[in-house]
Design a protein around this nucleic acid. Sequence first.
DNA 1: TATAAAATTGAGTAATCATTCAAGTTGTCA
DNA 2: TGACAACTTGAATGATTACTCAATTTTATA
Lengths: 204, 204
Amino acid sequence: MARASIHNRQDSLERALHLFWQKGFHATSLKDLEKALDMRPGSIYATFGSKDGLFQEALERYARLGLAELDRTFQAYESPLAGLAAYLRGLGGICDKELPSRACMLVKSLLELGEREQIARDKAEELLAGMEARFVDQFAEAKRVGELDSRLDPVRLGRRLQAEIMGLRAFAQRDVDSAAVHALAEDMAQSLEELRVDEIAEIV
Amino acid sequence: MARASIHNRQDSLERALHLFWQKGFHATSLKDLEKALDMRPGSIYATFGSKDGLFQEALERYARLGLAELDRTFQAYESPLAGLAAYLRGLGGICDKELPSRACMLVKSLLELGEREQIARDKAEELLAGMEARFVDQFAEAKRVGELDSRLDPVRLGRRLQAEIMGLRAFAQRDVDSAAVHALAEDMAQSLEELRVDEIAEIV
DNA sequence: TATAAAATTGAGTAATCATTCAAGTTGTCA
DNA sequence: TGACAACTTGAATGATTACTCAATTTTATA
């Protein structure tokens, strides 16, 4: 004995994510959300609690989808290093996609949010740490299977890769040619592949 | 026959820059600026025209100071490549400095601003392009003096370096150990130094 | 010292902000 | 069909937003 909701929660969250990713937290007003979700303020607050709460859920969804894509890429390649390089090359095509923003939403949030949005900021930090850990794991796996020089540190490599991806996507946010971003990603991917022990052995 | 201004324009701009760099455009209110500049709204508008105008001037000042530091570093080194590496290593200490933000203000603006702040956004893009051009010039100079393999493209290298710096500073915005950022900068600097032809010649 | 010009003030504007809640609507089950 | 419970509505809230302008203060010069 209850009225069924006319809104799909996940669908609403998806729309909110789109808006927050595109415009950022501060520039997204409740009016914007009302229009995008086709919901009145009362419904939004009943469903998500607050603008902050909705934003945090959007952040989590964004990271979950991002991690899923990461894993999908890694699983498509036998070689851990090849998986990492493929992920980088995939990001090279980011300008060709129709996305709310080419920059990472976690990075946008990290740079935008201050003390007044501490909880969401901490959430973004935590999710970025999770992504970094995934990169570190992949490098550790590469090391385990002998693709990586045993003297190299997966933690440093994972950190470096995350920084490079942050940079690649921030750069892609500029109004530059798609070709430039492709070339940038290709250069980064090649640097990564040069870590392969086989290649080092060839040169030395 | 006129009243002298009690505010130094440059000093006011410096304070505004500090605030905008720290909090971003949207999160910085005119109330915040009134307090930081110790000026009433009328004075601020008489001096800078609008919040947008003040922000744009702050952006320009930020970029001018950044470019000056870049040139100072480059001029301190005979070798162009060494200058670039030194600049990267200097950024490794960014966590130890007392700055409004560890992330680049141009990047923060690029990621935060939308169509409603198109002019400031374009300004940030233009200033970033100027920085990139400076990197390209330095790589071109390295090539001219024979530090760089003639097959390498200064444009791609400059682009790559800008992306790496964007990434380094976005990463540094996270709540991570200063040592991690130092290590990251060191890794980036070493990659850069490996471009030196001497090193390649040694290995091959 | 009187005058004019520039600088500063701060109350006030209209718009927008996130949020609340009483009232209305709708579907479900007894 | 009646009644309850969940969902939705949207006007109203008070706070905050960027910004304006008439009045005031200040100072250099005539």
